[in-house]
C-alpha cells in the first residue's frame, strides 16, 4: 500500500478500536456493582503471612502460587538473549579486531576521569543493592528479576569506567551463555525438586523458616537467587553482544 493509503486505513481501524476500547473500559468504572467473588490476588495477599511465612505477597504470588509463570519468564529471557547472540553472531565476512570506540566524523576522546571515578565509586553500592534486592524478595519489593537487572547495571558501570577489555576480562567467552543456562536450568531443577520431595512440580518443598528472616519462604529465596543469577548474566550478555557487534566486529578489508 502507499504510505498515505496505509495511514488512512490504519486511522480508520484505530478510530473504531479506540472507540470500542473506551466503550468497554467504561464498563469498569465504578457504578456497576461488582461480582461477589473476591479476587484471587486478594485471597493470596491475605494468606501470605501464615501460609508460606513470607511478608511480600508479590513474592508469594510470583514465585510460589504462580511459579510456572516465573519459569516461563526465565526461559523467555533465555530465548531472547540466545536469539540476540545468534542474530548478532560474527558472519563469514567479518573479523573480530581490537575493541575500538569510534564515532563518525570525529575523534573519540578517552574516558574522562570524572566518569572513571563515578563508575568505580558507584559499582560496589550498585552490586550490593542488587544482591540485597535478590535475596530479600520475600520480605520487601524486589526479587530475582528486579535484583538481577540492578546487578547487570553494576557490571555496565564497570564498562563505563573502563574499556571493553576490562569487561571481557571478567568472564570468558562462553561463560555468559553458561550462566544464563544455569539460571534457567536451575529453575527447572527446583521444579523437579518439588516433584521429587513431595506433592508436585515447582512445589515449595523446602523448610519455610520464620517470617521476617532472610531464609524464609522455602523455595522462594532460592528461586530468587537462581533467577537473579540468570537475569543478571542475561542482561550482561545482551550488553556484551551489542558492544561486540558495534566495536569489535569489523568487515573484512576495513582499514581499522
Amino acid at each position: 500500500m502507499s504510505i498515505a493509503g496505509r495511514r488512512a486505513a490504519f486511522l480508520a481501524g484505530a478510530a473504531v478500536l479506540v472507540a470500542l476500547l473506551t466503550w468497554g473500559f467504561a464498563g469498569l468504572l465504578p457504578g456497576r456493582p461488582a461480582g461477589p467473588t473476591p479476587r484471587v490476588g486478594d485471597l493470596l495477599a491475605s494468606a501470605s503471612g501464615p501460609d508460606r511465612h513470607v511478608v511480600d505477597p508479590v513474592a508469594l504470588v510470583g514465585l510460589d502460587a504462580r511459579s510456572l509463570d516465573a519459569l516461563v519468564a526465565a526461559f523467555t529471557v533465555v530465548a531472547a538473549v540466545a536469539g540476540t547472540t545468534l542474530v548478532l553472531r560474527a558472519r563469514p565476512d567479518e573479523w573480530a579486531g581490537h575493541a575500538l570506540d569510534f564515532a563518525t566524523g570525529r575523534r573519540v576522546p578517552p574516558t574522562s576521569d570524572a566518569v572513571r571515578v563515578l563508575g568505580l565509586g558507584l559499582t560496589p553500592p550498585t552490586v550490593l543493592f542488587g544482591l540485597y534486592l535478590v535475596t530479600h524478595g520475600q520480605l520487601s519489593p524486589g526479587g530475582g528479576f528486579q535484583g538481577g537487572v540492578v546487578l547487570a547495571a553494576g557490571v555496565l558501570l564497570i564498562y563505563l569506567a573502563g574499556e571493553f577489555e576490562d569487561l571481557h576480562g571478567l568472564y570468558g567467552d562462553r561463560a555468559l551463555e553458561r550462566g544464563l543456562a544455569a539460571g534457567a536450568g536451575g529453575t527447572v531443577a527446583i521444579g523437579f525438586l518439588g516433584l521429587a520431595a513431595g506433592p508436585a512440580f515447582l512445589a515449595n518443598a523446602l523448610p519455610l523458616g520464620r517470617t521476617g528472616d532472610v531464609l524464609s519462604g522455602g523455595t522462594i529465596p532460592l528461586l530468587d537467587v537462581v533467577l537473579g543469577l540468570g537475569i543478571a548474566v542475561g542482561f550482561v550478555a545482551l550488553l556484551t553482544t551489542f558492544l561486540h557487534q558495534a566495536i569489535v566486529l569489523r568487515p573484512l578489508g576495513a582499514r581499522r
Binding site: 479476587r39 486478594d42 491475605s46 505477597p57 508479590v58 509463570d69 528479576f145
Partner: peptide, 19 residues
C-alpha cells in the same frame, strides 16, 4: 476492587506487570 480494603495493590497484577 469489591469488598473490604485489602492490604496491598493486587499482587497478581503486580507480579504480572513486573515480569
Amino acid at each position: 476492587r469489591p469488598g473490604p480494603p485489602a492490604r496491598a495493590v493486587d499482587p497478581v497484577l503486580q507480579a504480572l506487570a513486573s515480569t
